[in-house]
Amino acid sequence: MSKFDIEKVERLAGLKLKDDERERIKRDIDEIINYFDILKEVDTDGIDPLVYTKWTRLTLRNDEVHTGLTLEEIKKNRKLFGNNFFRVRRIIGE
């Protein structure tokens, strides 16, 4: 049995595939996840994970005021815009 529970992962990822699509995509992903198994050959005991290379430093920006986007600009990318807010679908009662 595959460890990849696609319907559970869909829920986590905010996706909802159609049945035929789900079957096709699951087949591909099972093949890919099986391929990942070769990483088990690598002894990683005592190795620190690498996320950023050694050159990357987290720095703090100066505490200065910058102008961001204006409301007029933000509205350009959404037709349905409320009075100074993005409109979304119902949340309560689902």
Binding site: A13, L15, K16, K18, I32, V88, R89, R90, E94
Partner: peptide, 22 residues
């Protein structure tokens, strides 16, 4: 989508292609 969750899922499922979804 009537509800937000459904709207998110429909938007993402229709908006992304196969490789991105994978």
């Amino acid at each position: 989508g009537a509800y937000l969750r459904e709207f998110y899922e429909n938007t993402r499922t229709e908006g992304f292609g196969d490789e991105v979804k994978r």
